[in-house]
């Protein structure tokens, strides 16, 4: 069974997909990292992407907000095609939040300033309003009391939750997560995953690269398995875990689930 006939849930023909990737290819020099990626993400859909190291997962989701440039094919995010126009790209990035493996908080700014920076400078929001919004999201990720500390003074799990709050302050339509828990100690993983589950429950469109299979089972609408720069298998989580179709998927699952 190939990626094409997934039981793709009935798409409302009017609703524009949140993300469309059509025949996307990318090379790093000679190295063909992404090969023939086709992916349609509905609004409100939660997608988990897994696969062995080096298979191109990060590269794929980084193409969605143009942190990497694709060289062939089309990527359309929220109705805007990613071309060379820098202004359009900044617009797309405004609507697409991203959470990184290593948080990428700004160490010279306090937690609150980290969260208000983009609303103030990109959305031209008054400082007061931006701070209210920031405190709202910091409360939601359960760390309002850290607002005036610097990132270096927080634990890894807290930093990652700040990173999530920082993205949410821009009220993004889509959230990308690139292994948000893999730099964290086990006891901190749960607090970050809980935050992500809460976000999923509210209907955020999410693409998560993660190896947390419990999370995939709990929230994902679809699970994607990538290998050698291709989407090898894509299915509902139930089917994906119970009944992996592809030999490589089975091998991978047996390795990470034992």
């Amino acid at each position: 069974m190939s990626a094409q006939h997934i039981p793709s849930a009935t798409v409302d023909p009017q609703a524009q997909p949140a993300i469309e990737m059509i025949d996307v290819h990318k090379w790093f020099g000679e190295f063909h990292v992404l090969r023939d990626i086709n992916l349609n993400v509905r609004r409100g859909e939660r997608i988990v992407i897994c696969g062995p190291s080096g298979s191109g997962k990060s590269t794929m989701i980084r193409c969605i907000n143009r942190l990497e440039e694709h060289q062939k094919g089309r990527i359309i995010v929220d109705g805007v095609e990613l071309l060379d126009d820098l202004k359009r790209i900044d617009e797309v990035r405004r609507d697409v939040g991203m959470v990184f493996q290593h948080f990428n908080l700004f160490p010279h700014l306090t937690i609150l300033e980290n969260c208000t920076l983009a609303p103030i400078w990109v959305k031209k929001m008054p400082r007061k309003e931006a701070e209210e919004i920031a405190m709202h999201y910091l409360t939601r990720v359960k760390i309002p009391e850290q607002a005036n500390k610097y990132p270096g003074q927080l634990s890894g799990g807290q930093q990652q939750r700040v990173a999530i709050a920082r993205s949410l302050c821009m009220s993004p339509k889509i959230m990308l997560f690139d292994e948000p828990t893999s730099a964290l100690d086990p006891e901190m993983v749960k607090e970050v995953l809980d935050t992500m589950v809460g976000l999923a429950d509210e209907g955020m469109t999410m693409l998560c690269v993660t190896h947390e299979m419990g999370f995939a089972r709990q929230v994902a609408d679809r699970v994607i398995f990538m290998d050698y720069g291709q989407i090898v298998e894509m299915n509902t989580p139930d089917e994906f875990f119970k009944n992996p179709q592809h030999e490589r998927t089975r091998l991978f699952l047996s390795q990470i689930l034992h």
């Binding site: 907000n65 990035r93 908080l105 700004f106 990109v122 821009m170």
Partner: peptide, 8 residues
Amino acid sequence: EGAMSLGL
């Protein structure tokens, strides 16, 4: 990347 992803 953190800065760019926020749309700065």
